[in-house]
């Protein structure tokens, strides 16, 4: 099994662990949760237990492919160390990420006709301009104090993974963004809102 396959299969396990953790946030700790095993047992099942001859992870991989490195890191942090995640992404972060995802990924397929020559996704095979753009965006974001070191780390790790060919894709966009990133960002924002609501409820209970 090569690096691409290992990354892809582990990523499916992390996606499943994330879903279970989120379910635990909603429904509370029950059963195995008290032993802290609730995330990793299903994740391991997904990786190992076969259905129709192949593991569930391989089914999931065929269904939605491999997540980008940035999405993978966000999900992994959410599963193993949620306290280190930005609890509620800023609106500017959401807009920036959405633009980064929407422009190269969705526009070419849904809005552009075949006769339109601009295909931003294709830049990802020769990503010099993406690298320059990333450096400029990070520099501006630091000067405006709108980016945390954590996000810079995510981008840096994605670039290092790209240089090592960790994913199947040879296109840099696929390391940085994917459709799932939009959902992940929205999910994290929702998580933040829920945490704030829980905080308010606790505060009002204490006041009464």
């Amino acid at each position: 099994m090569n690096t691409n396959a290992i990354y892809g299969l582990v990523a499916q396990g992390v996606i499943v662990a994330m879903v279970i953790r989120f379910a635990r946030e909603i429904f509370g700790r029950k059963g195995l949760a008290r032993f802290g095993m609730e995330l990793w047992i299903p994740a391991a099942i997904v990786l190992i237990v076969p259905i129709a001859g192949i593991s569930i992870a391989q089914h999931l991989r065929g269904l939605w492919g491999d997540p980008s490195i940035v999405t993978f890191l966000l999900l992994l942090l959410y599963v193993v160390r949620p306290s280190s995640l930005p609890s509620r992404p800023r609106l500017s972060t959401c807009v920036l990420v959405s633009l980064f995802v929407m422009l190269p990924l969705f526009l070419p397929l849904f809005l552009m006709t075949p006769s339109m020559p601009v295909d931003l996704y294709s830049i990802g095979w020769h990503p010099t301009w993406i690298l320059i753009a990333l450096a400029v965006i990070v520099a501006i974001s630091i000067s405006l104090r709108t980016i945390t070191p954590q996000w810079i780390n995510f981008i840096a790790i994605a670039l290092i993974a790209y240089s090592g060919g960790v994913m199947e894709s040879d296109n840099l966009w696929d390391y940085l963004v994917d459709p799932g990133l939009l959902f992940t960002i929205a999910f994290l924002a929702l998580e933040g809102v829920m945490a704030r609501l829980r905080g308010r409820t606790l505060k009002s209970n204490l006041n009464t």
Binding site: H126, P149, A156, A158
Partner: peptide
Amino acid sequence: SSLRWSLTLLIVGLVAAGLHS
């Protein structure tokens, strides 16, 4: 210090990606 570390990592990433492509 965390920002410095992150920026160092980013520079490493940019250089590695640049060399790869």
